[in-house]
Structures are given as C-alpha cells and as structure tokens.
Write a protein that binds this DNA or RNA. Structure first.
Lengths: 228, 228
DNA sequence: GTCTATAAATAGATAGAC
DNA sequence: GTCTATCTATTTATAGAC
C-alpha cells in the first residue's frame, strides 16, 4: 500500500518549507504553481486515490520527479491543496463575522463568501464533497480547525442575531446544512446537470449563480426571521 | 490502467444475468449478497478508484475470485450498486408523485422519501456525493434515466402545485438543490460532524433526522407558498 | 460454487546524472 | 531545477483444480 508508506514518510520528515521560493515572478507560476493547479484539477476529477501523479505532471508540463522535488508525497500535495482551500474560506468568513454589519447582512455575506470561494476555485466543491464522503480522513489538524472555524463563525453570527432579537434561535448545524448543502451541490454538479439536461430535464443546466445565492439567502433568513 | 481494460471487457461481454440465483434463501444473503453489501461499504468509504477488491472479498468473507464469478468486473459491481440505489429512489419518488395527495403533502413526502432511502442505505449519500463530484462518469444510461426521473417527478409535483394555485412558480432545480443538498450533506457528514464536535463545535453531531427533514420541508414549502 | 496461485499491468516514489 | 531510468509494491483479473 503506497499510501501508508507515504504517511510514514510524512510523519517522520518535517516538511521542507522554503521561505522564499525561486521563480516567483508574476505571470509565471513556475513548476510548483503549475503542479499545484494541475493537481487541484486532477484531485477534483478523480479523488485522492484515483488521482494519478503521472497525469498531474503531464498536465503541469513538468517532469514527474518535480512533484517529489516540490512536495513530500502525493498525500502532502493533496493536503496542501486542502489546506489552501479552507484557509481561504475560513479567512473570508472570519472577515464577514468580524465586520460591523447587521446580522442579516452578515448572513447574506456568509452565503456570498462560500459562493465566491466555490466559484473562484472550481475544484473546491468536488474535492470537498469527496472529503465529506470520506469523513475528512485527509484533513490535517490545522485544516480541521479551519473547517471548524467556518462553522463557528456562522454560530456566532446566529447568536449575535438572537441577542439583537433579529433572529429566532435555530440549530446552527441545520442552517449550515441549508446554506452549504445547496451551494456545494450546485457548484459541484455542473457536469452532471449538463448530462441531465441532455437526458430530458430542460432547465437542469440553466441556473445562474445569483439564483442559487439568492435562493439560499432568502430561505435561511426566512427561517431565522420566523417567517416560516 | 486497469479501469480501461475493465471497461473494454464490460462493453464486449453481455452481463451474464442469472434469472434465478441459487442460495436465495431468506436470512442467508449468499456470497453474492454479502459481496454486494461489502462492496457498498467499501465504495462509500474509498470511492470507486480507492476501493480495493481484496478488502471487499475479505469483508464479505468470500474468496476474491468469487467477485469475478458473480460480477463481470469491479466496475460492473459498482454500477450494479449505483443502479440498485437509484432504482429504489426513483421508485419511491414515483409512487409519491403518482399518489392522489395534495401538492403540499407530495412535497413533504418527496423529502421523506429521499431521507428514508438515505437512511436505509447509509452508503448511498457518500457514494452519490462522489458520483456528483465525478460528473456521473460511472452512471449507466439506465441509471442516468432513474436519476433524471427523480428530478422529473419533483418538476411535476411543482407544476401540479402551480396549476392548483397552491405553489408559486419556482425554478425546480433550485428547489431540488434546496432539498437534496441539505439532506445528502447531513446524511453523508456523520463522521465528519463527529470530528468537528471533538474539535470544538458542541452540537455538530447532535442533530436528529427529523430535525433535518422538518427543516427542509418547512423551507421548501415556505418558498413555494411565497411566505418568503 | 469455492479455492490457490499467478499473470499482467500500473502507480508511487527514488537514484543519480546534468 | 530538471530529466531519464528504474525499483518496488500493489492491484485487477484469470487459469485451473476441486
């Protein structure tokens, strides 16, 4: 099993993080950046186990050995991608929660932040879906904290709304599922919806980002306001 | 690449479906049934590419060669599991849509049908998540039709509601995402929510099925009634 | 229907030259 | 930083005896 051998290696060796990387000119991602991008696409399409390092190298137009020059292993590469994603999402969400907007507005922006990140990194939703399916097996401790912080920020937005008597108390996990579930499903299901459209569902692929964002915002605020 | 070799074989050979299988006594699933169950768990946990036929055989307590006695290939086994899942869901949903209940009630039962199936087959949500992430690559034509029919049944329920002036016209894809997204996320995220709970989110794992079903029902009907 | 043994192919990872 | 060549382990799948 190559994966367990990989893990062993990751545990025993500290990651050789270079503080300043060569070739960091703007416009030229360099081999490391190209590998990172190519690997994101590969992991999204095939999952961690199904991803192939040869394909990653080919797509990045670099030699396979470069993967192991820049990253400790296939797993380390994957984990760096996961970490990058959730660090970005957690940062965005933290900013929203820390702003001085009203709870209603914060919730709307929370929804937009998730949608923005999902759109900016098209590989995020499929990868996140798979990671959920796998119980978050590949999440490092730090990344798990970032994931938790996203939920935690939503909790504090809801609490603030309740304190200000603008929100009714609703289980945050439900609100979270009501927001993240539809958003991820929408952004991850593009290719499948296209196939469904061809299979006889007329409007399956004809939904815009704003429709989904608006739907989720209306629905969540409706529940929190007690309109439902 | 073992997968492409597998596909070639599946295309060239017609599936050897036995009309009456030996050992179909109640209570004894037989080697075929045990393999089916073990494979479902394995595919849910590791995905198609990550699934291992040796582990499947071991979990089913049968010899590995039995997999290839009962099924044409790893892919064929996976596709049979996919087909079984969606055939069951499509059947349930079709019954709901064909009943003479009011549109409101049909929608509630639609939500319950999805939740029932997700609960009855715990491996369904993770497998479905992965299949979505992969664009439905492994879905056979027949199974794709079953998937489409689930959406189609929801469309007809919504149309009926509009005709009876009980529902406002809302994009069915949005309603579908608003129902299936949260439900699948909830049922697929059990293990991850447990980890989040340990990582400091108190109530992450403490949500009951009825909470989610009720939440989704309220929210969807709220949108359709125009209360939002 | 079930088992042993093994073929055949692939994948992750590394050594070492440049 | 980059490349060639290769090692090693694993994996799907099958042949063939019982």
């Amino acid at each position: 099993m190559p994966e367990s051998a990989t893990r062993r290696r990751v545990r025993s060796l500290p990651p050789p993080r270079r503080v300043r990387r060569p070739r960091a000119r703007a416009g030229d991602p360099g081999s490391r950046g190209r590998l990172f991008a190519a690997a994101s696409a590969e992991f999204a399409r095939h999952g961690f186990a199904g991803a192939n390092v040869d394909r990653i190298a080919a797509a990045a137009r670099v030699n396979k050995a470069m993967i192991y020059y820049h990253f400790a292993s296939k797993l380390a590469l994957y984990q760096e991608i996961l970490g990058d994603m959730f660090h970005a999402v957690a940062g965005r969400v933290r900013d929203v929660a820390a702003s001085d907007a009203l709870p209603d507005d914060k919730l709307k922006r929370f929804v937009e932040a998730i949608a923005d990140e999902a759109e900016a990194r098209p590989h995020f939703p499929p990868i996140w879906f798979r990671e959920i399916a796998e119980g978050g097996t590949h999440l490092s401790d730090q990344t798990l904290k970032d994931v938790a912080s996203v939920v935690q920020m939503l909790v504090s937005i809801l609490q603030e709304g309740v304190r200000q008597r603008r929100f009714r108390p609703v289980n945050p996990i439900l609100v979270h599922a009501g927001i993240v579930g539809p958003l991820l499903l929408f952004f991850a299901s593009g290719p499948l919806r296209l196939r469904l459209q061809r299979a006889g569902i007329p409007a399956a692929a004809a939904v815009a980002r704003e429709d989904v964002v608006g739907y989720v915002q209306r629905v969540s605020l409706g529940v929190l306001h007690g309109t439902l």
